[in-house]
Computed example of a mutant assay.
Amino acid sequence: MNLGLAGRTALVTAATRGIGLAIARSLAAENVRVVIAARTKDDVERVAAELHGSGVPAELTGEEGCRAAVEACQGRLDILVNNLGLRAGTGWADTGVTQFEQAMAGNLYPAARLSLLALPLMRERGWGRIVVISSVFGRESGGAPAYNATKAAEISFATALAREVGRQGITVNAVAPGSILFPGGSWWRRREADPAGIAAFVERELPLGRFGTAEEVADAVTFLCSERAALINGACLPVDGGQSRSNI
């Protein structure tokens, strides 16, 4: 299937590991010029070289870093994948207003800043794709309270923005991954620490009997960025193997 992405320029945030790296690789395989933005310079340079793209080390929780990331696209930005995510607190015992502020600063605010910075460049060409990586716990309750709230806010943001910019040739969607396993990730660390407990979790909670992979999320994101997904706008696509229990 020709996804019609060759020659496009994409900015992918937090793209040096896990889901972000898989998305960057998937887009690069479609002959997209990929610009990656992440905090660590060595990692950015390594991935940019692998993908024959470019990158910028940037602290994306602030306005300055977001501007630097968009400027690194050198005046053309067709695709924006907001993948940066941050968890603050684990339960109500260690979650208060401070943790909610931290979670918003690491999830919703970068997605909003980068999207608003990208829109003028997309409007110039009359075409654009914005994807926000939310979570299964943005669609239903569960997970850390502050993370849960901010991931739900990301879905709401994507839906609202989609209605505003759709007639300008720009689509905005969210993707809600379930439990995804990749080396060094949170589920990887939990499985290393408690193999029996995680095996029981998989048996109890994951209908496919396995974790998802970063590449499976990346494939869904790449499709949403394509010409073939032109009618998908304002949606939240679960990529969770049936893990979620939401009816919507």
Rank of each mutant, 00 (worst) to 15 (best):
A15D: 10
A15V: 08
A15Q: 09
A15L: 06
A15H: 07
A15Y: 06
T16A: 03
R17W: 00
R17D: 13
R17M: 05
R17N: 06
G18V: 11
G18P: 13
G18R: 09
G18L: 09
G18F: 09
G20P: 11
G20S: 06
G20N: 07
G20E: 08
L21K: 15
L21M: 02
L21I: 03
L21V: 03
A22P: 12
A22D: 12
A22N: 11
I23T: 13
I23L: 04
I23G: 08
I23P: 10
A24W: 12
R25C: 08
R25L: 10
R25Q: 15
R25S: 13
R25A: 10
S26V: 02
S26P: 03
L27W: 11
L27E: 11
L27G: 10
L27I: 12
L27N: 12
L27S: 09
L27M: 11
A28M: 07
A28C: 07
A28K: 09
A28F: 08
A28S: 15
A29F: 04
E30R: 13
N31E: 15
N31T: 09
N31L: 01
N31Q: 15
V32F: 10
V32R: 08
V32E: 13
V32M: 13
V32N: 11
V32D: 13
R33E: 13
R33H: 14
V34W: 10
V34I: 10
V34P: 12
V34N: 09
V34L: 09
V34E: 10
V34D: 11
V35C: 13
V35Q: 02
V35W: 01
I36T: 05
I36W: 03
I36L: 14
A37N: 07
A37L: 04
A38N: 03
A38D: 12
A38F: 02
R39T: 09
R39D: 02
R39Y: 03
R39C: 02
T40Q: 13
T40V: 11
T40C: 00
K41G: 00
K41Y: 00
K41A: 15
K41N: 11
K41R: 15
K41D: 14
D42P: 00
D43E: 15
D43A: 07
D43Q: 14
D43K: 13
D43W: 01
V44W: 02
V44E: 04
V44Y: 03
E45F: 00
R46Q: 13
R46H: 05
R46W: 00
V47H: 04
V47N: 06
A48N: 05
A48L: 04
A48Y: 06
A48D: 06
A49P: 00
A49Y: 00
A49V: 00
A49D: 12
E50K: 04
E50V: 09
E50W: 08
E50F: 04
E50S: 05
E50G: 04
E50R: 06
L51Y: 09
L51N: 10
L51R: 09
L51S: 10
L51T: 11
L51M: 10
H52E: 14
H52T: 11
H52V: 01
G53P: 12
G53S: 07
S54T: 15
S54R: 14
S54D: 14
S54N: 07
S54P: 00
S54H: 03
G55P: 08
G55Q: 06
G55R: 05
V56W: 05
V56I: 15
V56M: 08
P57C: 01
P57L: 01
P57F: 01
P57E: 02
